[in-house]
Design a protein around this nucleic acid. Structure first.
Lengths: 334, 334
DNA sequence: CACAGTGCTGCACACGTTAACAATGTGTAT
DNA sequence: ATACACATTGTTAACGTGTGCAGCACTGTG
């Protein structure tokens, strides 16, 4: 059907070995024959059969990009930035296979023969099992976005707690004391980290915390809307709300304006992530930038270098988050 | 290193052929031996080497999901919905490889050995070359989102022109006559289709078109903002603006509110796509729903069935777009 | 002239799997 | 008893590529 090195060999009157060597630029082959064979290959439109190569070289040319889930809890922006970052680094020789971990019924198909390396964009500790599995198989592995315990892997994460603490301190600096938090999806590591940051800031500034100011969300728009609706029904309404991601912040703002209240006039709202949309919302959202694209890029680069050299420090690297002040938070007028 | 069928064969005192047959549930093998071998395989934690399988079966187990670009012009929501739709359908046995067509320097690595099938999420006619290449190689192929010419492929597309026409007619029905359009990215097929819909509606209702009401955008937030800014500088401002996607609509609204004008009080804004965010914007965006997830799902399903049965009608299927009326368009008070 | 060295090429096998064909044993009809 | 069908298993080759080793021709050296 398609052209093989044997076909080329026949036409060039050499053995297929010579063809293989010529195409792989082996020093054993005479320059002229090399050139002749290459011309011929090009002319015949030869493309190597990567399945055969994979078999003998024991490399799949596949890289896996795995998300905790593709159904819910993974925002479009997160997916987009991750993919973009990784894709930017991937050399032409790798295929990038994208998948949700929770889609697997069995991890059977994930093994060293099928993946040269794996990038886990981890959001939930439910991934732990998968990560341990992959680590156990000694597949080159980098876990991004979530701090992973027990397993020795390259682990690149944003400093969520610090970011959350900073933005809550920003709210406090604007005079707010009645600050609510709409939390992220349960069991997501980031949910805990951001909550920790909130608590840290509140304690540091001696602000008493109210039980009813902590509301559960799940990182999507609707949950932000629902959570805010509950907060608005409180007798003593908060003057500011920290939403654990921008999607929920948008939902929250919707809930507020539906009640004919204004942001930030009546209630200040802060988000987290710095979604592409956030600068364009009305009001533009004050939030925390989480450098997902950089993390993906750096993680992918390290993974590639590990695959090639087999050596790199397996360690945790924190990426700075950054306060982005826009219009959705206003000082309180006493 | 890892367990192969030959290892199992030795332990089971049979030939490796028997093992292969047993694991593939061949009717040639005795039930008891079959069971025995399967137990053994399970016990040894055997996983088949897909590279070897691929080589002999001439199947890669790879499916390609190709976008025109992953850099700019592809919105996060579009990527997300596409991936979600396709992923929903993919059987466990396929790997989904995601890539931007404009990332290829050569299509060399795209061939029938490497891909069992390809889904092109086409946005630009710049893909045409790639599509023709893939079609020429007789790789099972489905092109989604953009109407493709000359090539006989499965082609599933949203009815953009009809949707655009409908929403512009909606603006007209609300009394608007000074209707501007912010166009999409140049050379994107959808840009043309939506413009055609706009023109169709205007002509049908005998509304004179002004040259200066047609402004170029490129589907991203910033371009919507810039285009709207230009429109606002006009002596005779439009009373309504049809933005060719929701991202640009958001940018446009930003530009309007920055000038202390209100949407829809002073200017009505309509979008296209029905991005997840659109219902939650302030004001909630009147737009056209484009069923990307359904299209991806249906396209992927057809591709799989084609791969298996090798027969399906290669034809164009139009998916209905749907007018979604929210709060960003207001009747004109004369 | 013998010998070692060098530069290039081919033979034969390996990778792990499937499949055409052969071989074996068992039962059944003649 | 013989032939024949049938059920089950094994032998062998094949898929396309890379590679250790052997072999060839030629060159230079003693």
């Amino acid at each position: 059907m398609s052209v093989t090195i044997k076909d080329i060999a026949k036409l060039a009157n050499v053995s297929h070995t010579t063809v293989s060597r010529a195409l792989n630029d082996s020093p054993l082959i005479n320059q002229e024959t090399k050139e002749r064979i290459r011309q011929l290959a090009m002319h015949l439109n030869y493309t190597p059969n990567y399945n055969a190569k994979s078999l003998v070289l024991d490399r799949s040319y596949n890289l896996g990009l795995f998300f905790s889930t593709l159904h819910t809890g993974t925002s479009a922006g997160f997916l987009y930035e991750s993919l973009k970052g990784v894709n930017h680094v991937i050399k032409d020789e790798y295929n990038l296979i994208v998948r949700g971990i929770d889609d697997y019924r069995s991890y059977h198909k994930v093994n060293r023969k099928s993946y040269d390396g794996i990038i886990v964009m981890s959001q939930s500790s439910a991934d732990q099992e998968f990560i341990e599995y992959a680590a156990g198989l000694e597949i080159p592995l980098v876990v991004l976005n979530r701090e992973v315990e027990n397993v020795q892997v390259m682990n690149y994460i944003p400093d969520d707690q610090r970011g959350a603490c900073r933005i809550v301190e920003h709210l406090i600096a604007q005079g707010h004391r009645d600050i609510a938090i709409i939390e992220g999806k349960q069991n997501f590591k980031s949910t805990q980290a951001r909550l920790d940051g909130y608590v840290e800031a509140m304690i540091r500034h001696d602000i008493p915390q109210r039980e009813e100011y902590r509301v559960q969300g799940n990182y999507d728009l609707e949950s932000g809307h629902a959570a805010m609706t509950r907060l608005l029904q409180l007798d003593h309404r908060p003057t500011a709300v920290f939403c654990c991601n921008d999607d929920m912040a948008l939902g929250a703002i919707k809930a507020i304006t539906e009640r004919r209240l204004s942001v930030p006039g009546d209630i200040s709202v802060a988000g987290f992530d710095d979604h592409v949309f956030s600068a364009f919302m009305t009001p533009a959202l004050t939030t925390v930038r989480r450098p997902i694209e950089e993390i993906s890029r750096e993680g992918a680069a390290q993974l590639l270098s590990f695959i090639e050299t087999k050596q790199v420090e397996k360690s945790k690297v924190l990426f700075h988050t950054e306060l982005v002040i826009r219009d959705s938070v206003q000082p309180i007028i006493r």
